[in-house]
C-alpha cells in the first residue's frame, strides 16, 4: 500500500533539495540581519524589522507575484540577471528555492536574533580585554554562544521551506521534475480523480518531516539554555 511512485519520489527529492539550498543560502544573511537587529540602532531599523517579517503576514500569493514582477524573465532585476549573468529564476527549481528562502526568512531570523540578544555582553567585553578584535569576539564568543539558536532557526526555516506552496507555485508554477515540490504535487493529486492515495502518502511524508523538524528545533533550544549556563 505504501509504495512510493517515481513521480512522488521526484517531488520529495526536489522538495528536500529546494529546502536545503534555500536554508543554507539564507542562513548567512539571516545571521547578519539578526545581529544587526539585535545589536545595532540605526535609522529605519523598525522598517527593516517589519520588512523581514512581511512574508509571514502577506498572502503567499502576493509574495510570489512580487517575486515574479521583479525576478521573472520580464522583471526588472530578472531581465538584467538573465542578460548579464545568465541567472534565471523563473520556472526553475532555483526560483522555487528563492521563493522558499524568502518565505522562511522570518522564521530563520527570529531564533537567531533571540539567541544573540540573550548573550551576556560582558563576556564579549572580557574577550576584548584578552586581546580579541571585534571580528574575533564575534567568531569565538558571539557565534558559538548563538549556535543553538542558529541551528534552531535553520530547522524552522527548513520546515517552512519544505512546506511552502503559495509563493512557489505563483512564482515558478508547478512543473513536474523542475518546480513540483511535495506541496504542489499534493495540490495536483487531489484535483485528479484517483489521486487520493498518492496524495495521502505525500501528506504523511510531509507530516513526518515537519514533526522531525519541530522536535529537532526543541532539542536545539534546550541545548542553547544549557550552553549559556556553562554545563
Amino acid at each position: 500500500m505504501f509504495e512510493i511512485s517515481p513521480t512522488e519520489w521526484t517531488a520529495i527529492l526536489l522538495s528536500l533539495r529546494v529546502a536545503i539550498i534555500a536554508t543554507l543560502v539564507a542562513t548567512p544573511f539571516g545571521i547578519a540581519l539578526a545581529w544587526l537587529l539585535a545589536r545595532r540602532n540605526f535609522w529605519g531599523k523598525s522598517i527593516l524589522d517589519a520588512a523581514v517579517h512581511l512574508p509571514l503576514v502577506l498572502p503567499p500569493v502576493v509574495t510570489g507575484y512580487l517575486l515574479l514582477l521583479t525576478l521573472g524573465r520580464r522583471g526588472m532585476v530578472g531581465a538584467w540577471l538573465a542578460e548579464n549573468l545568465g541567472i534565471v529564476f523563473a520556472f526553475r527549481w532555483t526560483g522555487a528555492a528563492l521563493a522558499c528562502g524568502v518565505m522562511s526568512f522570518p522564521l530563520l531570523v527570529r531564533p537567531i536574533r533571540l539567541s544573540i540578544e540573550a548573550i551576556d555582553r560582558r563576556l564579549e567585553q572580557a574577550s576584548s580585554t584578552l586581546g580579541a578584535a571585534p571580528w574575533q569576539v564575534f567568531a569565538t564568543v558571539t557565534l558559538p554562544l548563538a549556535l543553538p539558536g542558529i541551528l534552531a532557526g535553520m530547522v524552522l526555516g527548513f520546515a517552512k521551506a519544505i512546506g511552502e506552496f503559495g509563493a512557489t507555485i505563483t512564482f515558478v508554477s508547478n512543473i513536474p521534475g523542475e518546480t513540483q515540490t511535495i506541496s504542489s504535487a499534493i495540490y495536483s493529486l487531489i484535483q485528479t480523480p484517483d489521486g487520493d492515495s498518492a496524495a495521502g502518502r505525500l501528506v504523511l511524508i510531509s507530516i513526518v518531516i515537519a514533526m522531525g523538524a519541530l522536535i529537532a528545533s526543541e532539542w536545539f533550544a534546550r541545548r542553547a539554555t544549557q550552553r549559556l549556563h556553562g554545563n
Binding site: L123, Q125, A126, S128, T129, L130, G131, A133, L145
Partner: peptide
C-alpha cells in the same frame, strides 16, 4: 581599543566563557 591595550582585567563575576573548558579559557588570550 581594548583589544590593543594589553591590559588584563579580572572581573568580579569572573566571566569565564561558558562554552569553553578551563584549559581553553586559559589559552584564550
Amino acid at each position: 581599543p581594548p583589544h590593543r591595550r594589553r591590559i588584563g582585567y579580572v572581573f568580579q563575576d569572573a566571566r569565564l566563557f561558558p562554552h569553553l573548558d578551563v584549559r581553553q579559557n586559559l589559552d584564550y588570550g
